[in-house]
Amino acid sequence: MTRLGWIILAVVVLLGAAFAAMTSFGTASRTTAPHVGVAVGEPSARDDAPLAVPVAGVRRAAIVDSWMDPRGGGSRGHHGTDIPAAAGTPVIAAAPGTVEKLFASNLGGTTAYIRSPDRRWIYYYAHLAGYAPGLHEGQQVRTGQPIGYVGDTGDAGAGNYHLHFGLQRMQPGERWHQGEDVNPFPLLAGRARGR
C-alpha cells in the first residue's frame, strides 16, 4: 500500500472511532428519564455544584427562597424550598442517589427520600401526588429521572400544588430522617455555595 493509502486508511479509522464515541447503541431502559428539558447525568462531585431543578419545565429563575418562612401559624420555620407547578407535573431527581425511603406522613404527605451516592446527603421530595411507575426503595436513580408527580398531599392544602424540596446533611450511621436541614435554594437557583 502506498503512503497516501495508509494516510487515507488512518483518517477513515479515526473518523469511525469518533462516530462510535458519539453514538449510543442498544435500547433505552424503562428507568431512563424521558427528555424533560434538563440534562441527565452525574453532577459534579463538588459540594457546591448546583442541583437540577426537580420539577420538569420549571426554570431556575422562577424558584423563590422560602427557607425559614413561617409555617404552622408561625410555630415553626420552613425547612426547604417550595416549587409551585401544575398538578401532575413530573418531579425528577435533582441529583443521583438511592431511594432510601418512600413514606406517607401527616406534614409531607407522599414523600421520597433519596440518599446521595457518597451517603452524605438526603434529597427530600414531599407533597407528591404519587410515585413514578416502578419506583421502589433501594433503587438507584440518575439526575433527571422521574420519581413522582407534583401534588397537594400532606399539609400542603387542597389545590396548593407544589413540590417541597428539602436537603439534609447526613452523618455516618444516620437514618433517612435524622439529618441536619440545609437550605437547598442556592443550589437549586444555580447560586452554588458550599453545603
Rank of each mutant, 00 (worst) to 15 (best):
A49H: 08
D82K: 08
Q168L: 10
G80S: 02
A132N: 06
Q139I: 03
A87M: 10
T89C: 11
A21M: 09
A52Y: 02
G97F: 03
G173R: 07
G134S: 11
I7H: 07
G179T: 11
A156H: 07
S24D: 03
T111D: 12
T32V: 14
D152Q: 09
R76W: 05
R142T: 14
F19R: 15
A20S: 12
H136P: 03
G159N: 12
Y113K: 01
S24R: 15
T23D: 02
A28G: 05
V12L: 15
M22C: 03
A158E: 15
G130F: 06
A87N: 09
M68Q: 15
H177I: 02
S105C: 00
G194L: 11
H127F: 02
T89W: 08
W176M: 10
G138S: 07
A86T: 13
V58Y: 07
V13E: 05
V55L: 12
E100S: 05
I122K: 03
L9V: 15
A86S: 14
A62W: 13
T153M: 03
N160T: 11
P184I: 05
E180R: 15
A61T: 15
A86H: 12
L188W: 06
Y123K: 02
H79L: 12
M1T: 13
H35L: 01
G77K: 04
T143M: 12
G154V: 06
A104T: 15
H162G: 00
K101L: 14
W6L: 15
M68E: 15
E180C: 00
H127K: 05
V58H: 07
G97Q: 10
G80F: 00
G166H: 11
S105W: 00
A95S: 14
D48Y: 04
L163V: 10
A52G: 09
R3E: 13
V38H: 07
D48N: 15
W67H: 08
E180G: 02
L188K: 03
N106H: 08
R193I: 13
T143F: 02
Q168R: 10
A189G: 10
I83H: 03
Y113A: 12
V13T: 14
P54N: 12
G109Q: 09
K101Y: 09
G26L: 06
H162M: 10
V53I: 14
P90M: 07
L4S: 13
